[in-house]
Each structure stands twice: as structure tokens, then as C-alpha cells.
């Protein structure tokens, strides 16, 4: 077994590919082939939260399961903490936590505490520390009062907290969180994000998949966008804004615009890109502004034949970045 490098990246994948093959029918079997990951190269540094964004079916869960040793890749390599996820599972599994979340994955007929006891034993949490450790994580996720109630009586948010408690019970070095706040009410989601941040301050590397943009923007200094099995961008949020054409966005709405007017807008100083979007009878133009020269007034002046014109400026959001990049990939 190779020695773990403390300085190397937390995650390193090269050409990671995963193909799913399934069969339908009994007598006349129809084979379907789905390429969930198409040669993913990704490096994640230690000791921070790294976000993986992507639409449904992009391959986020597949990628997470490969990294957490629950799925084998069809091709390529994946190292976690410097160790091969396909060959060194014995070394890796005690050092990683996985939170897949959702309503499933727990023994509903027994208490939350008994669920944690069982997994503490499977993870080899020292017996002398087990009860103290369980109490500690239950306190941390604010479930101590409900610890001895059956899980089937828990709300969805409480189950999600229990998933998290199980994920950190054995003090992993790296924690994989697959959409940890999906389906949670705003208060529970906020508490979960607070907990995730606190784990990083303890030195845990967190790999988070989500399709909530504000969550990624709030939690992840760096992130990658996965679309149709490929990484389409990887950087800080600010650099991703620059990548799609600037950190300012001006939105213009009216019942229609002529091609001539679009050409005028494209010619304004600092406008790097215009995205058009129809909603009902209206048309929205979204202008990415690379430099500070073009203003709301400047745009209004450039469209004199529109008395009902609505123009507003806002900061380019991660959602803009995401939609631009994923949309380009889809095209």
C-alpha cells in the first residue's frame, strides 16, 4: 500500500469515464448504453469545500459514488487522499464519509442513536469513545433530544441531519456530500450549511454536489460545473464570472427588439455577450458587461423607441454563469 501524501491534492481524477449498460425485455433484450462520465479530469485541494454543480443527470452522483468507492469507473483513474479508489478501498473507507441523503439509507424502525451505534461499530470507532462520540455528533446536528425516537418519526430535515451525523461520526478526513440540502426547508438548509462550514474549520475536506447556486456560491471557494458527463468549467466564482463575460449584468425587457437594436447594444463599450430569452409576450436581453463603461442610462439611451423599456443592473450571479455554461454545452 502506498503512503498517503499529506501535501498532494485531496482528489485527483484523470480521464474518468463511466458507462452504464442496461437491458430491457425478456425474450428480445434491448441493450441501452449511457455514458454518465466522459473523461473527467479534476483536481481538488485539501482542507476546503469544493462544489460540483450540474443539472439533473449531469453525472454528479456517479462521480461522487466513484470517489467514495461505491462504483467502479469504466476507464481512467481516481485518487482520493493520494490513494486509488479502485484498489485501496481498505485504506480509504475509514478515512472518508459519505452522505447521500434523502429519505432512504437509514433503519427507520430503530432510534437515531441505535443507527449511529451500528455504523460506529462498522467504522471501528473506538468502543470506549463510542457513546461520547455519538452524543457529540448528535449535539452538533441538533438531534440530541430526538436521539432515542424511532427514525420513522423524524421529519425529512431530521433524517438529513442524521445522515450527516453518520457521515462525520468516525471523523473522516474527506466528506462527500451529495445534495445535502435537497428537499429541506430554508431553516434546516441554513443549519446544514452552517454545520458544513464548521466541518471545514475542523480541517475536513468537503466535496459537495448541489444544484442550488446560492448554496454553492455561499459555501464553495472553488467549484466545477459538470454537464453531460464533462467538466465545462472549474475555478473560483469570480473567475467563472469573468469566464462568461463579466461580473455585471444588465437586463433589458420589452415586447420585442429589432436586429438593428441588438447590433447597437452589441456595439456598446464593455458588452461581451447578449443572451436573449422569451417569457410570455416579452423578450429579455441579458447583457454581460466586462468593463464599467456601459450603464443602465447608456442602454436606455441606445433604445430610444421603447417608452415602456424596463432596464435593471445586478451583479452577475453564479446562476448566470451556470446557465450560460450549461446552455453552451447543451448546444
Amino acid at each position: 500500500m502506498a503512503l498517503a501524501s499529506q501535501d498532494g491534492p485531496a482528489i485527483e481524477t484523470r480521464g474518468l469515464t463511466r458507462v452504464f449498460q442496461s437491458r430491457k425485455g425478456f425474450l428480445f433484450r434491448e441493450r441501452t448504453r449511457t455514458e454518465a462520465l466522459k473523461g473527467v479530469d479534476l483536481t481538488v485541494e485539501r482542507g476546503a469545500i469544493f462544489g460540483l454543480l450540474g443539472p439533473n443527470g449531469a453525472g454528479k452522483t456517479t462521480f461522487t459514488k466513484i470517489l467514495s468507492t461505491l462504483l467502479l469507473p469504466t476507464d481512467g483513474t481516481a485518487l482520493v487522499l493520494g490513494h486509488d479508489v479502485t484498489k485501496e478501498t481498505e485504506w480509504l473507507r475509514p478515512r472518508m464519509g459519505l452522505v447521500l441523503g434523502g429519505e432512504r439509507g437509514l433503519y427507520n424502525r430503530i432510534s437515531g442513536r441505535d443507527n449511529l451505534r451500528y455504523f460506529a461499530d462498522l467504522y471501528g470507532v473506538p468502543l470506549a469513545e463510542r457513546e461520547r462520540r455519538i452524543r457529540e455528533v448528535l449535539e452538533r446536528v441538533d438531534l440530541l433530544d430526538a436521539a432515542d425516537r424511532r427514525v420513522e418519526e423524524y421529519s425529512r430535515g431530521m433524517k438529513q441531519k442524521l445522515h450527516l451525523a453518520r457521515g462525520i461520526l468516525h471523523r473522516p478526513e474527506i466528506l462527500f456530500l451529495d445534495e445535502p440540502t435537497i428537499g429541506l426547508d430554508p431553516k434546516s438548509a441554513r443549519e446544514t450549511r452552517k454545520l458544513i462550514r464548521s466541518l471545514v474549520s475542523d480541517g475536513v475536506t468537503i466535496f459537495l454536489t448541489t444544484h442550488y447556486m446560492f448554496e454553492a456560491e455561499e459555501l464553495c471557494p472553488k467549484l466545477a460545473i459538470l454537464s453531460k458527463g464533462r467538466i465545462v468549467a472549474r475555478d473560483t466564482v469570480d473567475n467563472l464570472r469573468a469566464l462568461i463575460g463579466g461580473d455585471r449584468t444588465i437586463e433589458v425587457e420589452d415586447y420585442g427588439f429589432e436586429d438593428r437594436e441588438l447590433a447597437v447594444l452589441r456595439g456598446l463599450p464593455g458588452v461581451s455577450k447578449i443572451v436573449t430569452e422569451e417569457f410570455g409576450p416579452m423578450l429579455r436581453l441579458t447583457l454581460r458587461i466586462r468593463t464599467g463603461e456601459t450603464t443602465v442610462d447608456g442602454v436606455r439611451r441606445s433604445l430610444p423607441g421603447h417608452p415602456e423599456l424596463a432596464v435593471r443592473e445586478r451583479r452577475t450571479s453564479l446562476e448566470d454563469v451556470y446557465l450560460d455554461l450549461v446552455d453552451e454545452e447543451v448546444r
Partner: peptide
Amino acid sequence: MSGAVADGYTGRRSTYAS
């Protein structure tokens, strides 16, 4: 918190837990 790898499962303990 991190770096404290559990002291290892044992077959007997896991069997009893199950």
C-alpha cells in the same frame, strides 16, 4: 477533527453489531 482514523473494526465487533 480530521486525521483521527478509527482504530479499526474487528470481525467479532462487527458481527455482534449486526
